[in-house]
Design a protein around this nucleic acid. Sequence first.
DNA 1: CTGTTAGCGCGTTCAA
DNA 2: TTGAACGCGCTAACAG
Lengths: 353, 353
Amino acid sequence: MIPEIFLHKKSMRKKRVRKPITILDVAKAAGVSVSTVSRVLNDKDDVSLETYEKVQKVIEDLGFTSSLAARGMRSHRTRIIGLVMPDVSSLYCVEIMQGVNRVIMNSEYDLLVYTNGDINKYSTANHDSRFVMLLNGSIADGVIVVTPKATDFHTTAPLVIIDPNHEEPDYPAILSTNREGAQAAMAYLTGLGHRRIGHITGRLDLWSACQRLQGYKDGLAAAGIPVDDRLIQFGDYTTETALKCARTLLAMEDRPTAIFAANDMSAFGVYQAAEEAGLCVPQDVSIIGFDNLQAAAYQNPPLTTINQSISEMGAIATETILTLLKGETPEEKLKILPTQLIVRDSCQPPGAR
Amino acid sequence: MIPEIFLHKKSMRKKRVRKPITILDVAKAAGVSVSTVSRVLNDKDDVSLETYEKVQKVIEDLGFTSSLAARGMRSHRTRIIGLVMPDVSSLYCVEIMQGVNRVIMNSEYDLLVYTNGDINKYSTANHDSRFVMLLNGSIADGVIVVTPKATDFHTTAPLVIIDPNHEEPDYPAILSTNREGAQAAMAYLTGLGHRRIGHITGRLDLWSACQRLQGYKDGLAAAGIPVDDRLIQFGDYTTETALKCARTLLAMEDRPTAIFAANDMSAFGVYQAAEEAGLCVPQDVSIIGFDNLQAAAYQNPPLTTINQSISEMGAIATETILTLLKGETPEEKLKILPTQLIVRDSCQPPGAR
DNA sequence: CTGTTAGCGCGTTCAA
DNA sequence: TTGAACGCGCTAACAG
């Protein structure tokens, strides 16, 4: 684990070198057996106070901490909850993480966040297999997975999915009324009088994105507006891609008077494109997003969007895992959270000044 | 229009595996020994193609993934970098994480983020010991620690510190010119003509906060302004606490015409307090922060602040760890990044309208 | 090329 | 109350 060279260099200068100190080192130093040390570590009650304190002191002195790996492998209990996220650069994921952490803090568990990093790595096989290590290797007692592409997992540990990619997931799951939320967004825009409404989709390999696209179409149908395929641009939930999509939409001769972005991150890209094109929001183009990120309220103008209580989803998922870990059955296997229109200043009737 | 691959059906549902499947199961099913399976797993070149494919297929069929814990324990190599953060609700930490992740993505390593959750848990002993598990347990090959209170760690794995709590840390470290940055902030305010300048400190148990406080005092001295203790409020880098501090400052009879917050999160609290008090920024009170979070530019008005390239710090720390992991010695043990004044719209001369 | 063997560090039986 | 022995799942020696 440690390059030899590095070790030597350090040991020459300072004696801060600590070869991995194990339970055996503690046992020797304390003049007891490893099993006695183990008992002390796990607060068993069949250890004499005298021995307990002696061992405890040695542990302190040596700065010993038992190995998570070895312990987990043996006891199949680590007191750690794993959170698997597709991407940390997405504020959506960050807010979920905050919600999870809020609940973890008040529990006896610790949080370990695993991320494969790149949202653009559409190859899910790699991602899935890697994350399974977390549990299969008994590193985590339970796992929360965010927007997985996979719908099936090889694991024995409790698993909860946030935003599952399946209508009827095999695991407890938390999701929002994506389609209804999108319908609400569209109803708001058509209610304002918009008839040319563009849509920047999310990652259509995810169910949520498909549902929002469907809601977009529903909204058009409800207002008696035919679908114009040119007004549908395929994004991937990132600001970067949405920027390109928005450029295309705003460069059209008969450009849309409003754009419904599949999520707030995408909506941010529309703001950028509008500014590039010298268009004012909302005078020249109305924008509505989806998610209600904290950052949405800080935009200029503040973004009208559809709220889904993201951090709440993380919190509920964590509580569900905790319930499962206690051996109990959660009340509902599928928890569906309502969405809600949040009106701010990024939309107005078309043509109005 | 929409490719087949994007359609979501509940068609191919596999049966859930219940028992943890091990390398032995694979060996049996493939009719080979465990070591052969191990060789396949680790892409050793001394396996016949025939055997390789046979084993590979069984692995696929059984959905087997090797245990991180067992592997790490045995080989002392996990290809995982650990990131230990004090708090995920701080945007500062989030941006560091993003910087780390950016570099990790292009490496052969994976990222595991560990957080003890509560920034208010000042008891560091607990935190430190828990994080040591990450490495001691051979879960991570190297670790990056963000704003640790501790200055010494019991570990054998490479360690890099971001924002160390010591002038001359025993480990490679990344930090910013906190004192100089604070001086620049103060020079800007005094240059605008402010003479009553409040300061909301950071967590004074952290070196960075002390340095910024020192920079505040330096700035006053440079302008020939005596220190007024009442103008120094003790915060902890959180928006919540800063809000209270700001309320106190703004309620003073001879309230400050400008406030220097030790970080942007704290500055956000000042915005809130100003709004509560019916004061306008920057007409009634100027505000300057420190960090230059992405969110700082979105405030209303956009926050003038001191830039420290946070995500860059994460990136550099990661590159340092990667260098260490290769057995090489990083160029500089202590990397000090310059800070820079970012002028936006939250400051103006006192009294001006 | 492949199988056998010996631990990695720890928790948990069983004896003593 | 304590210690010795075993095995968790895996990789790295060494045989064959």
